[in-house]
Amino acid sequence: MATGGIARSRLAEERKKWRRSHPHGFVAKPETLPDGSVNLMVWKCVVPGKEGTDWEGGYFPLTLQFPEDYPSNAPVCKFPAGFFHVNVYPTGAVCLSILSNAWKPSITVCQILIGIQDLLDHPNPASPAQDACYRLYKKDMRSYKDRVRQQAKQYPSLV
Rank of each mutant, 00 (worst) to 15 (best):
V42I: 15
E68W: 00
A102W: 03
T63P: 00
P80M: 10
G57Q: 05
N39C: 13
I112N: 01
P67W: 07
L40V: 09
E68Y: 04
D69I: 08
P48E: 10
F60Y: 15
M41W: 06
L96G: 03
S97L: 04
F83R: 09
P75D: 11
A93Y: 00
V94W: 04
C95H: 04
Q117Y: 03
K44N: 15
K139T: 15
D121I: 00
L40M: 14
V88A: 10
I107T: 14
F83P: 09
A74N: 07
D121S: 15
K50L: 10
A129K: 05
H85E: 05
F60P: 00
S72N: 12
P48C: 06
G58I: 02
P125D: 11
P123N: 12
Y59N: 10
L33K: 15
L62M: 07
V27E: 10
K78L: 12
D121Q: 12
A28N: 07
P123I: 06
S97Q: 09
V86R: 01
N39G: 07
W55N: 01
P34E: 14
N101I: 00
G92Y: 11
L64D: 03
K139M: 09
A81V: 04
K104G: 00
Q111H: 01
G25D: 05
A81F: 06
T108K: 02
G49F: 04
E51C: 11
P123K: 07
L96C: 06
N39K: 09
Q65W: 02
L119S: 02
K138S: 13
V38C: 09
V76L: 10
T63N: 11
S100T: 07
D118E: 08
D54N: 13
M41Q: 11
T108S: 14
S106H: 03
N87W: 08
Q117M: 00
G36R: 12
S127I: 09
C45E: 03
N39Q: 02
P71L: 11
K139R: 14
I112H: 05
K44M: 07
D69P: 03
C95G: 08
Y59Q: 03
G82N: 09
V42K: 14
A102M: 10
N73V: 00
V76I: 13
K50N: 05
N39Y: 10
T91P: 07
Y59M: 08
K78I: 00
F26L: 08
A132Y: 05
V86M: 09
K44V: 03
F26Y: 14
I107D: 01
S106T: 14
E31H: 14
H24F: 10
W103H: 12
W55H: 11
L64P: 02
A126N: 13
V94I: 14
P105K: 11
E51G: 13
I107G: 06
W103C: 08
E51W: 00
L64G: 05
G49W: 04
P34H: 14
E51H: 12
A102E: 14
A129T: 05
A74C: 10
N39P: 03
L99H: 07
L120V: 02
I116A: 01
A102S: 15
F60V: 02
V47K: 01
A126Q: 14
L96T: 02
P105R: 05
V47Y: 03
A28T: 05
Y59V: 01
G115T: 03
V86N: 03
K104F: 08
D131Q: 12
